[in-house]
Design a protein around this nucleic acid. Structure first.
Lengths: 219, 219, 219, 219
DNA sequence: AATGAATGAGGTTTCATTCAT
DNA sequence: CATGAATGAAACCTCATTCAT
């Protein structure tokens, strides 16, 4: 089946070609500001071909978001698994991982936020569309994984036990997400005050750790 | 000059008619998903009239953002001024105010975020366009006001003094903004875990307070 | 009737205000590139007022063209009447007058050319619309006056008699009109060759004079 | 590659279809008075198709102007090259050629005049836009060619030598251009006087020839 | 007389999508 | 499979003109 194999391989290559072309454009200009024409030109393919591989602009977008969230999930899993010691260390690793992801892949971050913003109406398709389902699934898995870690943290004593683990997980995620979403205004503030971003983040994270440990464990 | 007055009033009414028409559409569908045609139809006016009152779709948008941020600033000022006791109380009031704003006016919140997202290029017009200038001005004023409160908190002992006030102000803003930005995913988590949003937020805020007080002042 | 007089005077002033406002804009940007809005703003009057005084943009335009051609005709008449000596002198004066008009009032010149270009369809209105009629009348009068001069030039021997006077008048008008219409390309040529415009024109006119005199009279 | 050839041919046909559709409309009503809608309808294509082939109304216009001036240049070159005898004959041929062009292609003539009128701002694009560059190039080439002919005419004695060749070239071009630009008024004069246009032009041209020859060579 | 708000047709342009080849 | 020409709806915006006051 060498011929079929090659065809298959070529097809996959075309797909990736399109995806990476769209990615770079979406990353730079944002979903709405990119036309299928630009994507086609950037991929050195015809517009028809784009529509052969992706039935929609939206489908292409979804594929990219899926790719992004897969990567995000994988990075988190790796970071968590590499972690030893008390559970709180894993929470720290997870947080850092999120922040690093947002910094290293700001494009993915934005597209994922767009997905969650309600700009499209994906709620109805969570069950019907497998791609949407997987995206939501990854998101879910990450949250559940956090809950799990919090629970074991409570057990090993590294995480406070005076707050419901599920609630605490949500709180932690919120505290981390705001570092990930630092907007232009935030960057302005830094510039104006001549504060180093990395230093600020590390201060921030240690404050979050204090919160996670709880009043008794602090110190 | 009753006649001129009435004209003036009518003109203002039309303006508001247009603005509120655009607002409701922007709030529901987002800036890019709303056309001037829809706005006109929704306002029961002709397209020409819309362009008579606002030279641009962008100008209309800016007016709404300005309205939103004016409201935000005013609410914050009121909340802060009504506050008595140590400075930290004012920070708490400010935080709650932000959260309430985001909950009560999610549409304004989104449009303001869009403004800050760099989707338009307003940087060049901060000085030339008075509307842009005012928007940025409000944002600035709020941040500086926070810094001020932090400083007086350090003085009256209600705020920790082991972190640079400016940095602490930024950190507080970050911690609050993530409550304001709670996205659909966040709401999902709550629903799934049957956690009460209000309760969560109040827990969250008290944790933030702990952070602000610092290790020595806690409890 | 002082009140009525004043009113009448004011009305006339308003008219002139509008006309001169429109003139300067038409002169600078061309008929199609100027909007009634601009004219109103430039005249410091409301758009409604403009339409009160002129039922149309076209009507306003016609009034200006009429003003221009009246001036042109008058200048020519004066120049011709001031002339003494043989008839050919009057032809020279007339030509110089046209060239001076085109140089001093290039705006009028352009608007008059637009009128003659067929951009509007005034042919049908030559009899019905008195303004159109007068414009065409002035044009006609100038031509006939040229024919008349040529005829008397033939009589006094200053103009060649081997060409039908009417034909010669047309020819002279053509030769002069091309100096009046000097287009950008022409100006480029001058610049490129560092030729003085005035000198060129005076050379040109003396050549035209040679033509008018005819082979026998040359010298 | 018959298939690719046919596609190419079809594409070219469509282009020509659009161009000729636009041409006839521009010729009849003038650039500003023609909408892309009309062009599309006239070409029996959708508006989108027009914009697929020409990114702009202006681009479409430029293409037509280019076509016109190419034709003009070519006709002139042919006429000049076919000419034998003294250089002045070539000037005559060139002049006749210009007059014939203006009579046979009055639409092109008008569009070219519009180009030179400064209605658009092409000065900035003379170097950057190849189409603008070529248009200007043809114009230039024609003028230089006239200068060249005048110079050789001076050498072979068929052209007067008492006027600077460059200046004389400009003068000749002016004298010819006014025959080309004969406006409605001119045509009226002819009609009124029952003068035959062709006869007039031939008289005119022989007068111009007299001018070119100079006082000594005349007759 | 003067105003200026309101209109709506019409302008150019963009773009996701389809489809014959 | 891949192409790219063709589409047409819809976007933003302009402008001459009208009309109630």
């Amino acid at each position: 089946m060498t011929i079929a194999d090659r065809k298959e391989r070529e097809r996959e290559e075309r797909r990736m070609q399109i995806i990476s072309s769209a990615e770079s454009l979406f990353f730079q200009n944002g979903y709405d500001q990119v036309s299928m024409d630009q994507i086609a030109r950037n991929a050195e393919l015809s517009k028809g071909t784009i529509f052969f591989y992706f039935k929609n602009k939206e489908a292409l977008y979804l594929t990219i978001v899926l790719q992004g969230i897969r990567l995000f999930h994988q990075l988190i899993d790796e970071a968590v698994q590499e972690c030893t010691g008390p559970a709180i260390n894993r929470l720290g690793a997870l947080g850092l991982c999120g922040i690093r992801f947002a910094r290293e892949y700001p494009g993915y971050r934005s597209l994922i936020l767009l997905f969650k913003s309600g700009r499209f109406s994906f709620e109805d398709r969570v069950t019907s569309d497998p791609e949407v389902a997987e995206i939501v699934g990854h998101s879910d898995a990450i949250i559940r994984s956090m809950e799990e870690i919090v629970r074991s943290g409570v057990e090993d004593g590294s995480v406070r036990n005076d707050i419901d683990p599920v609630e605490l997980a949500i709180i932690i995620r919120m505290m981390i997400s705001c570092v990930m979403d630092k907007n232009p205004e935030f960057l302005w503030s830094l510039q104006r005050s001549a504060i180093d971003e990395d230093l600020l983040i590390s201060h921030y994270m240690s404050l979050v750790e204090t919160v996670i440990r709880g009043p008794e464990n602090s110190q």
